[in-house]
Design a protein around this nucleic acid. Structure first.
Lengths: 108, 108
DNA sequence: ACAAGTAGTATCTTTTAGCATACTACTAAA
DNA sequence: TTTAGTAGTATGCTAAAAGATACTACTTGT
């Protein structure tokens, strides 16, 4: 890693990994790809996530401008993907494709 | 996550995350993109990695057929990327590109 | 008035990753 | 023959992530 360029690239990869990695964040983003959702809707959707983890991850994604939290004055909190969040979709698509190839290689 | 397709996709994403995620595995792969390397060469390259972590990650990458370990009869162990491992390069490239855009959005 | 749903917070425990440090066994050069 | 480099293994620690479980405060429908 003396190579500066490689180092910077690795930093970028780490950033992305931080975002879509972890037990739940990828799943949260995937769930919000569908449509905007409320807190309990997400909680049901992800089945075994705890509220503590969900709120922590939502705050993280909000800080990273991937998800927006809107407290619609009518007292319903709605979480949705931002434009930036949506820009992750094609990348996740690429990852899925490689992951499928990988699965075949490992199992076959 | 009632949607089966989304569930499977999420599983694939998780697989990929497992591979390039974590503190070191991405960096190890990046370092091996350059050229094949020996254990201590990698250890020096990654500077602060401990041998325990390095050997654990190398074994993991080997099991996943991304890295091959060749004990060249002349007693030098050489680690290199497999064809499958090399196929990760373009994907990592895509990730780097998104990561750079992301950095600009977060900082700007 | 009451039950159920909303969006969380609080506390405690377990699991896991990675770090620090030291050690082994082998080889090859000076 | 000592020294340095090879490729690891062993042991103990710490910090962060996640799970289990219970609780709060507010709102809405019946």
């Amino acid at each position: 890693m003396k190579n500066k360029l490689k180092q910077m690239q690795n930093r970028d990869v780490q950033d992305v990994i931080d975002i879509i990695g972890g037990r739940w964040r990828g799943a949260i983003l995937a769930s919000l790809c569908d449509k905007e959702k409320r807190f309990n809707e997400l909680k049901r959707d992800l089945e075994s996530i705890t509220p503590k983890t969900l709120i922590k991850d939502l705050k993280f994604l909000e800080m990273n401008k991937l998800v927006s939290r809107e407290d619609e004055t009518e007292s319903a909190v709605v979480y949705s993907l931002t434009k930036h969040g949506k820009s992750l979709e094609p990348l996740i698509g690429q990852i899925v494709i490689w992951g499928q190839k990988h699965r075949k290689i490992i199992l076959g």
